[in-house]
Write a protein that binds this DNA or RNA. Structure first.
Lengths: 192, 192
DNA sequence: CGTCTATTTGAATGTACTCAAAAGCGGTGG
DNA sequence: CCACCGCTTTTGAGTACATTCAAATAGACG
């Protein structure tokens, strides 16, 4: 049932069977249909989400425009840390781009685990550190690279993403308009 | 001696006098002159830095150009998390913009503290979470706002920074050329 | 097949960039 | 005290590239 989850957690900390079983008593499964939201802006993010199958996208809206923050595929974790930690309403939306199965861990459960089992405090730290590094990579991509470079890098580093995600979402993720991404692709095809 | 440090840490976790004293046994003081680097790209970041007085800037170089990531003033913490955590050479430089006094905490000390005192594990988690939120704010500023909006926001949110930091560093922080920032300022002065 | 959405293409526009040079400012030494 | 030097900031002119507005084409799904 939770084998996949166990594998991912094992990459971060070693849990005994008991500890993992205890962890899973708090887990909730949820199935999402394509385009369904698991978090809507204005709500407080009270869960961490683990993608079992499918794909999530988080985005936020600025002046009526959607900005895509990130995509998450099988075995990835996500939560809107800002809302999750502060308890403030989230400005993000988290949406399933395909029919998607997720495992939800309530914040309250994590807090309980942090207190009861020191090992989970370490888990929490490592997750936050990992999240930080992921975001930094993303930030550098946006600040240091031209749209064309960003797209070429994405092809190189996450080729499966290109095949799986509709182009206008990729444009939004790269920080350009769909028309611009279309032209970028054209340029790339014409010039080796 | 370490009163200022104690105050800042108290904002995050409660430490007993003994715990704090133990913590400070690992601390090292360092004075930096203006323009001096405390971390150079290629080195591994083995310390967390706490600014006692003065100001630090971290930047990295892309195709010969400096990109300023962030400024840190009195009572701020910094470390290149990526290098600090992974042990890989840093791509960042950390520089004093003024004569600056810092307190350095070795990574090895933190690891020891994490193991020995559970409370510090929590401290580590909270610091990572805080770092994450700071970076996210920065990322959104870059992705969602025009250079002019970024500058106006900076004036509003960190007015002291504007007075204290030379303009070309601010331009670099905002992701524009110094000439462009100069023109932005001109526009702002002319139009209310 | 027809409708709706996604992608592509075209033309005009705007904004930051580059290259270049002038003006401003701070510090040093005569 | 002033003259000079290096560095910062400003200004000008021309360019590059993503954007906007608009429309055509292509694909997906009922």
């Amino acid at each position: 049932m939770y084998k996949q989850l166990r594998q991912q957690i094992n990459k971060i900390i070693d849990l005994t069977d008991e500890e993992f079983d205890y962890f899973t008593t708090f887990a909730k499964l949820k199935k999402l249909r394509r385009k369904e939201l698991v978090l809507t802006e204005g709500e407080v993010c009270r869960h961490a989400y683990f993608v079992k199958t499918g794909c999530l996208r988080y985005f936020y809206t600025v002046q009526g425009e959607q900005h895509t923050g990130q995509f998450f595929f099988e075995s990835a974790w996500y939560a809107d840390y800002e809302s999750f930690l502060s308890g403030q309403p989230s400005r993000q939306n988290i949406e399933a781009l395909e029919n998607t199965e997720i495992i939800m861990i309530p914040k309250t459960a994590l807090e309980k685990l942090y207190q009861e089992v020191p090992k989970f405090e370490k888990f929490g730290r490592l997750m936050a550190e990992k999240a930080f590094m992921g975001l930094r990579q993303r930030t550098e991509m946006i600040t240091n690279q031209s749209p064309e470079e960003r797209y070429l890098n994405l092809i190189k580093q996450r080729p499966k993403l290109i095949e799986r995600i509709p182009q206008h979402y990729i444009a939004s993720y790269l920080g350009v308009k769909p028309q611009s991404l279309s032209r970028i692709r054209k340029r790339i095809i014409q010039n080796p």
